[in-house]
Computed example of a mutant assay.
Amino acid sequence: MPSPTLSQPVIDVSTNWSRLFSEMCELLEATMQVVSVRTTRMAIAGPSPDEQDRREFSLMSVEKGEAASESILAMHSGLMNLTMVLAKDTNAHLWATSAAVTTLVSSRSATQWFECQTELLRFATDFPAHPLQLVSSATSLMQEILAPIHNRATANARRLAAP
């Protein structure tokens, strides 16, 4: 008996989810490292931090604002693109369904009517046309939204870990 093979959309979804999970784990690990180093530095510096600590503490605020802005922009553009794809797919589905209904109504025989009804039911059950592609697109969008935060957190963890 041949082994079942996975289709490309299933592989894409699995790959994207794995990548997102991995990046989330990296982000959480880097965040814990950075928070630990910075809070320790704050505690040691006390009420009068030196110049290096003041630069680091100022950098924290600037980086958070920049990363948040970039994430919001990625979310906005990604959601706009995803909305356009969904609108296009929905429009195509509505036109195809309307054509199938028109063909069903204009059937001239019982056989033709059953064939047209089968086609109409196929349209009803096939929407959305590419559900796995939609899931994969949403997962990719999450990666794009988190990328600025991930990049800064991991870069800070590497920089602060350096001797």
Rank of each mutant, 00 (worst) to 15 (best):
F123W: 13
L82D: 11
A67H: 03
E70H: 13
A129V: 05
Q133M: 07
F114T: 05
V105C: 13
R54C: 02
R122H: 10
P131T: 09
W95Q: 10
N81C: 09
E70F: 10
L104W: 12
Q52C: 06
H76N: 13
R54H: 01
F114C: 05
G78Y: 01
A92E: 06
C116H: 15
S77W: 08
S136C: 03
M60H: 12
D53L: 02
E144T: 01
R108C: 08
E66I: 09
I72K: 10
M75T: 00
V85E: 05
A92W: 01
V135H: 04
H130W: 05
A67K: 03
Q143G: 14
A100M: 07
K64F: 09
K88F: 13
L141T: 05
M75G: 00
T118D: 13
A87T: 11
L141P: 04
T118G: 07
R54I: 01
R55N: 06
L79T: 04
L82E: 14
P128Y: 03
F127T: 02
E51V: 09
L86Q: 11
T90A: 09
D53Q: 10
D53S: 14
L134C: 06
K64H: 14
K64G: 11
E115F: 05
T139S: 14
R55K: 13
I72E: 06
L86V: 12
K88S: 09
M60S: 13
S107L: 08
Q117M: 11
R108D: 08
L132S: 11
E56K: 02
W113C: 14
S106D: 15
P131A: 10
L104A: 11
L141A: 03
A110G: 04
F114Q: 08
R54F: 01
A96P: 02
A124S: 14
T97H: 00
A74W: 02
S109T: 14
M75I: 00
V105R: 15
E115H: 11
L59V: 01
E63D: 11
F57H: 01
E70G: 15
S106W: 05
M142G: 06
L86A: 12
S98M: 15
W113P: 00
L82Q: 09
E66T: 03
A87N: 07
T118Y: 06
C116R: 13
S61L: 14
W95R: 11
